[in-house]
Design a protein around this nucleic acid. Structure first.
Lengths: 343, 343
DNA sequence: GTTAGCACTCTCTGCGAAAGAGTGCTAACA
DNA sequence: TGTTAGCACTCTTTCGCAGAGAGTGCTAAC
């Protein structure tokens, strides 16, 4: 990687930056004229030939300028990017105003990011810890039970359960008591057969219902758990001619609509401690086939100790990495503040 | 409208059907050869000239065949369509399996329809009656209150409220009692100042919290109420060359992504009794500007007495109206069954 | 090591010719 | 009088080709 002398680096940087702006292949003349590198186009040409041989840039055809290769972008992202510390519009206020419910907040985050960056964005809901805080049963009809479950972190889920037996207050009271006694503080994984058997015994005559309720609990979690992903700015993709072409755009849009297909890149290595920062996937580096012509930048946010979600931005390979990265950094900080305040 | 003799009608129908299939302008020769109308192309040409003059068909340019005008489509939809009573794949079973929660069910409906028709689909959540069935407060932290509201029709909403005062069991109990006494059975519109004042008086020292809670109730309704719309098959639009072109596709996709923009066509005249059936909007007839080159077919479903939602299908003007209409009809019947069973 | 110069390559644009499709009109036919 | 065959005409689409433009690689000179 360090086989580049200073001049080559300068030229490479100039090529990439120019290409990021224009999206057109960059010729030697452009570099020699419009940068502070005072060399003739011929010299630049020689250097460019070298850079191409080394794989940092590519010539679409013989008589065109050069465009960065994936390797070139990689080098740029790793070594050349300057930290634009410019404070991005602070979104915090807008976010706090609009969003009281987590879902809405995340949707808003996606939208704000999309508007700010002009790329497509995606946000996953955090994978909350499934520790039961308490459970509350309420009778709503003679044979219908409303089950409200509050998990650690104040995640609330509710579900209506139809029971076969006819209900009465005593029964509901007892069930409430039993359920809470046994399940409070338990992780979902900890609700195993021994616990269930014990509860059954305690419940006495009502034990048939216990099953129904446990079912509901499990379902209500796994259901939402199948990865809620919020997206925004889908159509931004069509703003970039290199993606708009052919059927690539269609495939891409389809991938984004079928949100499940995005998990590949958003779930990727959430547990790996190293990958908590900002990650950049360039072209082929992406785990998602249909995004081979794109770059994706992801970041991890933390809602509270140990509860993570991800934010991602999808754009053309020539995306404005600096802006995207700094915007994400800024966003992460602001989200941190929001969540800390909330707790 | 009845200025068309039988032969003209036959020819018009042939033109439209052919165009629906191919998407290409239809020439006189095609009609004379590939239909059971035994006339020479010359005769057909004469008739076509007439039809054009009357506004049913259009010539994109002098030496091209004819394509239907909006008026032509309208005539076709109103007069010529045959009821394909063919039973469409019964979706009921798939639906019942997959969807226990209303939201999921509606999302599934959208998806199924999209897959079945190859068009873009949208489904609105039903506008439920906002009659309070009961309210339940639970203390989850020292200064946090979980408010669960169940509305008529077993729609459940929950919200966490931060209160300034520190809570205790007595307080929560009393508030629960007061709220339920006063609000049960009330429509949200009926919660007016007198009621609120009375409640305040009853609540005594806790009256500050009452406001917070009422706020939460109102918010939790209006929030979800801002029209949940589910869409699916967005990218299907790109399958039709006449829409794929230019920036029209982009605009369309944008309209669909910004689901709020769809309310124009989905909320339209829900109260009008006449419009409960299946409605077809052709080209300019649509209330949504960006869909001028599309046709939209909507249908109204009824979840229970007086609670309606809409289903819509967006496609090119040359959409397969017969199939779409019959699919929707079949879907409506199946939804009816599902909802009746549920209640 | 740098640069000027030049031949070379490739793409893009515009243009005209040719092909193809379909029409409208006229004249003949039943 | 309605239907049809025939033909000239119009318009689009396709193709090839020439010329312009952009950029290169190489060579030779500085």
């Amino acid at each position: 990687m360090l086989d580049l002398d200073e001049r080559k680096v300068k030229i490479l940087k100039a090529i990439i930056q120019n290409y990021l702006e224009t999206g057109e292949p960059v010729g030697s003349r452009t570099i020699s004229k419009y940068t502070d590198i005072n060399l003739s186009s011929a010299t630049i040409r020689n250097e460019m030939a070298d850079l191409e041989e080394m794989g940092y840039i590519i010539q679409p055809h013989t008589s065109a300028g050069r465009i960065p290769s994936d390797k070139g972008y990689r080098f740029y992202v790793d070594m050349l990017m300057e930290d634009k510390v410019k404070e991005v519009d602070d979104m915090k206020n807008i976010l706090l105003e609009k969003a009281d419910k987590l879902e809405n907040l995340l949707q808003q985050v996606a939208k704000l990011l999309a508007v700010n960056t002009n790329y497509t964005t995606m946000v996953t809901a955090p994978q909350f810890k499934k520790k039961v805080k308490f459970i509350q049963l309420t009778e709503i009809e003679d044979n219908q039970l409303l089950v409200v479950i509050v998990f650690e972190g104040n995640i609330v889920r509710n579900k209506i359960v139809n029971v076969t037996a006819s209900l009465n207050k005593e029964m509901v009271f007892k069930l409430n008591f039993v359920l809470n006694t046994y399940l409070q503080g338990l992780d979902l994984e900890e609700i195993n057969l021994p616990v269930i058997t014990q509860m059954r015994e305690q419940a006495g005559e009502y034990q048939i219902i216990i099953n129904d309720i446990l079912d509901a609990i499990m379902k209500s979690v796994s259901e939402e758990d199948d990865m809620k992903i919020f997206t925004s700015g889908t159509t931004n993709i069509l703003k970039y001619p290199e993606l708009r072409d052919n059927d690539k755009a269609t495939e891409l849009l389809y991938t984004i609509e079928e949100k499940k297909l995005l998990t590949g890149i958003l779930q990727d290595n959430m547990d790996d401690d190293e990958n908590r920062g900002i990650q950049v996937y360039i072209g082929d580096e992406t785990p998602i086939e249909t995004m081979k012509d794109c770059s994706v930048v992801t970041a991890t946010y933390e809602i509270e100790e140990g509860v993570y979600g991800k934010v991602g931005i999808i754009g053309p390979k020539r995306m404005d990495y600096e802006k995207v990265v700094s915007t994400l950094q800024s966003l992460m900080m602001q989200l941190d503040e929001i969540f800390k305040k909330k707790t």
